[in-house]
Design a protein around this nucleic acid. Structure first.
Lengths: 331, 331
DNA sequence: CTGAAAGCGCTTACAG
DNA sequence: CTGAAAGCGCTTACAG
């Protein structure tokens, strides 16, 4: 290619990479020839030689989960603006898979790794990933995480506890006392924090948390379905179901519809996240809004900044959104 | 690292890459030392030296669109099984962006490129991408596309026309004659093909397609909202809205709810795709099911196979799913 | 089975 | 501004 343009490969390299030190006319000429030949720079060679990368990694539990989809969407938006390639990987909420995926990203020498999936309550579980990320950071990699992790990294932290408190206050304020909680694994910090907020509100309202069943199922729509069936069978006098994310709430609504239990007439349902579709359900889902796309965008922005002396933390507020799925307790 | 293990870098390379030709004990020893040191192979160097890659690229219009989310999910599933990294890029339905993204993937020397976004009816628009992909293929790259494109590549082809026919037959069979069609850009092959099917059914039923308004808006939930407002204003006697994808149908349902138009009492609404949430809406959305995750999985499977002499085509059926959003026309 | 050496396609001091 | 040369970290014939 350099031959074809009649220059050295050094000059060709500079012209194509946009490095200063080439006369505009020569640069132009090189670019023209490259375009004609359909020449495309080999990024692997560039990375190897220059130590730079234009790729970043995004680790999610499951891209099909709308929470992660929206985060990914925000990440992609800023990545596009920065001309960065995004490698997305799934963990399926399995720490072992997460570790393998992180290794994979490190092997690919991505410039930054974004961990969007929830952390684990048990610090031990995150030790291997933490070690891996610390070596990565030591060698110049940048890391940002979303949510509470036992990792030393820049963090975008949604206020899950405050959100949990708000949604529970809303439900309690409607007069409900026979609640049931539809929860994902309490081993996830996201779940634990939201649950803690819900319990805070209960204490404040004089409701004994221990008296309120916490139904633990998969943190998915299907988990919501299964959990709802259990609630209907095991706690038939429940008047409000507080789901710990929207996905579970959506499954819950679906199951209640099938069981012909009117919402909110017979039973109130609430979610958490405010995924795009939450307002389009019928009834619309009362939930806590988290600005997921924005969280993704900010996580990448953090990772792209020069690292601080100590990890930065960006706190993100949670906001109650009241729609049709919650109503006053009967009687 | 090779030093630390007391072997040559050639031996270390073989042990780590799992290439045969190393004694099991030495290989074991190398791997142990590597693990201790937290050594991670540089994939760029491996790619450059070996000409291999473990990454593939997936091009979607917008990852936030559930159609693409589900395709991506299917792709990620088989990628995980094959230990492949997936680079996802957005085009925003812009051909120029699509071209840049494809170039980017080529520059990254991914082993395969999957184009999941709809093609364009105008062949001219796809010419630059086609040229790029042909060079890529010529140099050993593999390409698979989903949907109808003007590209010479293995294809997973959902039967959009048959789907369009089925959904229209369903609606016409319910007695509706004053239809309105909620459509994305007719410049997209996906839209054009579905529309063609709908029109086929109309001809067959003796309904003049020209008499049925086609409201063209963005192929998104918001486009569905806007289009529905227009239909309500411009064609107030419409009894059935046929949306060309679920996203638009969801926006439509939301708008109708706001306008207090009962579904299907006053107006029937149908979608196309059967995204995960379609059954969880209320009323459930009558739609055409496409196995999106499966389509993604099959596209990757095609790309991973040895290329055939000529492009392969995998046809995927479309299936009518009747739920609550469609009902007989009021007598 | 093991190692020395060439080479993958770039970038980047270093000279000119 | 331009080029020759070293080097990025691997893989892979080629010898041994």
């Amino acid at each position: 290619m350099a031959n074809a343009a009649g220059v050295s490969i050094a000059t060709a390299s500079r012209a194509l990479a946009g490095t200063p030190g080439v006369s505009p006319s020569v640069a132009e000429q090189v670019r023209r020839v490259a375009a004609e030949l359909g020449y495309v720079t080999n990024m692997h060679a560039r990375s190897l030689a220059g130590g730079t990368t234009s790729a970043i990694g995004l680790v999610v539990h499951e891209i099909g989960d709308p929470y992660f989809t929206e985060i990914a969407s925000g990440v992609m938006r800023v990545a596009a603006a920065e001309e960065l390639t995004v490698q997305i990987c799934h963990t399926g909420r399995d720490p072992g898979t997460e570790l393998r995926q992180v290794r994979n990203l490190v092997a690919n020498r991505v410039g930054a790794i974004l961990i969007a999936g929830s952390g684990f309550v048990d610090p031990e579980i995150e030790v291997p990933v933490r070690d891996e990320l610390e070596r990565y950071t030591a060698s110049g990699g940048r890391v940002a995480v979303i949510g509470r992790h036992h990792l030393r990294a820049d963090t975008v932290q949604p206020d899950n506890t405050a959100g949990g408190r708000q949604i529970a206050e809303h439900v309690l304020g409607l007069g409900h006392r026979r609640l049931a909680i539809l929860s994902g694994s309490r081993g996830l910090t996201t779940v634990a924090d939201r649950l803690a907020g819900v319990h805070d509100a209960m204490w404040a309202a004089g409701v004994e948390p221990d008296a309120v069943p916490v139904i633990e199922e998969e943190f998915t729509r299907d988990g919501g379905r299964v959990g709802t069936t259990r609630i209907l069978a095991e706690h038939p006098d429940t008047t409000a179901i507080v789901a710990i994310n929207d996905d579970m709430a959506i499954g819950c609504l679906s199951e209640l519809r099938q069981a012909r239990a009117s919402v909110p007439g017979r039973i109130t349902v609430t979610g958490f996240d405010d995924v795009a579709v939450a307002g389009d359900l019928a009834p619309g889902l009362t939930t806590i809004r988290l600005p997921m796309a924005d969280m993704g965008a900010r996580a990448l922005a953090l990772a792209l900044k020069e690292p601080g002396k100590r990890p930065r933390k960006v706190r993100v507020g949670a906001e109650l959104v009241v729609r049709g799925s919650s109503g006053p307790v009967r009687g």
